[in-house]
Amino acid sequence: MTHRIRAARPEDLQHLYEMAKLTGGGFTNLPPDRKALTAKLERSAQAYANLEEGDPKSERDELFVLVLEDVATGEVRGTSQIFTRVGQQWPFYSYRIATLTQHSKELNRTFRAEMLNLVTDLEGSSEVGGLFLHPSERAGGLGMLLARSRYLFIAMHRKRFSDRILAELRGVIDERGGSPFWDGVAGRFFGMNFQEADYFNAINGHQFIADLMPKHPVYIAMLPETARSAIGLPHPSGRAAMRMLEEEGFAHEGYVDIFDGGPTMTARTDRVESIASAKAVPIAHVRAPEGSGTAAKALVATGRLADFRCCFAEIGESAEGLVLDPIAAASLGVGEGDTVWHVRR
Rank of each mutant, 00 (worst) to 15 (best):
A39Q: 07
A295R: 12
T294I: 07
G129A: 07
E290I: 03
R160L: 02
A330G: 15
G303N: 14
K21P: 15
F208A: 01
N50T: 00
M144D: 13
G78W: 01
R170E: 03
R243P: 06
A8T: 04
G177L: 13
F64V: 01
R6E: 03
E290H: 00
F181A: 00
D183L: 06
L118P: 00
E53C: 03
N117P: 05
M213R: 00
G205D: 04
L107C: 00
R34G: 09
L322V: 11
D121Q: 07
F312K: 15
A298G: 06
A328W: 09
A298Q: 04
G74S: 03
Y219K: 14
G178F: 04
G205L: 02
A167P: 01
T120L: 08
I275E: 03
A227R: 02
A306M: 08
H235F: 00
V67S: 02
P32Y: 12
T73Q: 05
E127R: 08
S237C: 14
S136A: 11
V71C: 13
E123L: 07
E314Q: 15
K215A: 12
D307L: 05
L166W: 03
G87W: 09
E225K: 04
R6G: 10
A295I: 13
V218M: 08
T2R: 10
D307V: 01
A186L: 00
Y17N: 15
S125W: 14
A329M: 00
A186D: 00
E114V: 09
K159C: 06
A147Q: 05
P10M: 10
A240W: 11
T38M: 12
L122W: 01
T339K: 12
W341T: 06
R239T: 13
A147K: 11
W90G: 15
G316I: 07
E246F: 12
H206S: 09
